[in-house]
Write a protein that binds this DNA or RNA. Structure first.
Lengths: 165, 165
DNA sequence: CATAACGTTCAGAATGGAGTGAACGAAAAT
DNA sequence: ATTTTCGTTCACTCCATTCTGAACGTTATG
């Protein structure tokens, strides 16, 4: 209902089918990235439809409880992947993709890697010089995460200058 | 026991403490990356100790069942993060970090991103031109994953040329 | 040959996180 | 003022994955 459903006349329910497939796929995909499945489905809905979706419609169309929508949108909001917006004349909350949703998505990953590197560095500092072997190996391990963090930050930067949503 | 335990005389059990902390931390860290906790603890053990560890010692020191060790080392072996090696005169299997454990770790992530991008591209191909808006948005979404894949591959390459373990 | 040590497998227990839905407070509508 | 409509919260259920441990085949060892 919140989609373009009956707009075209050429592809009847074919598109609705593709849309649902897509939403479901993204749901399981992001699940493998540490997000709850519903968060992925919400995101996929917004990506596909391209227009703001209401709280109620999300719950109804995805056939999940409002409680689930509440926690999933909060998660996505906190990471600045989606934004909560108002629609004049409607009491419901609406949601749309954040300006730089993808950039933030990448930067979230970058930050996670950075934190991991820092955590290893912490252990490293506690470790006396005498343990030169372990010291060197942990340093390499920390570098590994730092390298990832830098690479992802660069990717985010590239994405940002592309100016894409 | 498989560690450097009683080697130094300055830091008695202090180091053993740091070591255990480290192993446990990495365990939960990699858990957040989709690996079982025990796999992380095995990896951390090998990183810290820097020498091959026997199947039996791993089970004993980490205080987990041999079944768990079996499945965790297999997982790490499959991704070429660790190698199974033989120790002359010992029937047990031994494990050590793979030559380019970190490189492979990154490339695993890169591949996951690449797959994600491809999966979106699949949906994209099914979607008729008429849906130009959705088409464009999905394309951006696919690019997002491709961008990550490239960034991680680059990071892997840099890591490789650094020649670090 | 018999016994022991090794690693794997598989069914079941344990664990953790996701999703549900009723209860709630707030805000609008009537 | 009363009744809806909203979104959030929280205790509970449900589900997936991890981990365990006994059974097993295999290979060495006595």
């Amino acid at each position: 209902m919140a989609t373009q459903g009956q707009a075209g006349m050429d592809e009847p329910d074919d598109i609705a089918q593709i849309r649902e497939d897509f939403i479901e796929r993204i749901g399981v995909m992001v699940q493998g990235e540490g997000f709850p499945r519903i968060a992925g489905r919400v995101l996929a809905t917004l990506v596909f439809d391209g227009e703001r979706a209401s709280f109620g419609d999300l719950a109804e169309n995805l056939a999940v409880s409002r409680g689930s929508i509440s926690s999933s949108v909060r998660l996505l909001e906190d990471r600045e992947i989606i934004r909560r917006v108002a629609k004049p004349g409607d009491r419901q909350d609406y949601f749309e993709m954040s300006e730089d949703a993808f950039v933030n998505l990448i930067e979230n990953s970058a930050n996670r890697a950075r934190r991991a590197g820092k955590e290893i560095a912490t252990t490293l500092n506690r470790l006396p010089q005498s343990q030169s072997g372990a010291h060197a190996r942990l340093a390499t391990y920390a570098d590994f995460y730092d390298e990832i963090a830098v690479a992802l930050s660069d990717a985010a930067e590239r994405m940002r200058h592309r100016g894409q949503a």
